[in-house]
Amino acid sequence: MNKARRNPLNVAAAHGILILYTAIALFPVFVILINSFKSRRAIFREPLALPDADSFSTIGYQTVFNQGDFFLYFQNSLIVTVASLFFVLLFGAMAAFAISEYRFRGNTIMALYLALGIMIPIRIGTVAILELMVNTGLVNTLWALILVYTAQGLPLAVFILSEFMKQVSDDLKNAGRIDGLSEYTIFFRLVLPLVRPAMATVAVFNMIPIWNDLWFPLILAPSESTKTLTLGSQVFIGQFVTDWNAVLSALSMAILPVMVLYVIFSRQLIRGITSGAVK
């Protein structure tokens, strides 16, 4: 270690910059959360003060619970996200196994074809997707969203999972074949458990964009019974724009589930990004 790397002044400057940026990153979330628990007067009089006995109020949350169907929105978001992740992982892992395990004609072309979607955003095809969903009667159903997110997540999932599956030892699979296991059993019993960390990475990568998406719920499933939490809060806030208590409470309620997911999965997410899986 040299002197420059240990210089206490440099260390202090480093911490100074990081603390400053952390404050910038967290400040808006903090302001929204504390003000959602305050009375209307306190929101305007002292926006930066923590709620105390005097200014504490849950009036905003009451409006949200009475006016918006947030439990339904939450349920829709949960169904869409979980189902899409399930299909992305299952179909993605199956295709990745076929590409990485077997040599067959068109193998490389297949891998390239599936990789196309990594760079080209699916939104470009929205007009035709809407037409397809209208023709098949899937518009305003959660299936429309699940199918779109599955298609959107597959290219990267196949790419990452096939990289990992190449590392699974051939001896293990051949031992299974000698014992008379079918290719399906080898995939589900031997290979899948071994690539579980990569599956988790893929799941975490896909989870947040699906949960937060506004474009497809707005276009494919805007009906009241199929609104996701993101679309529901957008519409709710649009209607209650002058009711600051309700808006702040709705925002806080939309922040909460993502924050809980993030706290649970943040190590996985950061390890996934920094492990070089997407390089």
């Binding site: 990153a25 979330v29 929204i32 506004l214 806030i237 924050m259 997911l261 993030y262 943040s266």
Partner: peptide
């Protein structure tokens, strides 16, 4: 990384 996980609406 917190802001990155929030939705555009928020």
């Amino acid at each position: 990384f917190v802001p990155t996980i929030l939705s555009f609406v928020i």
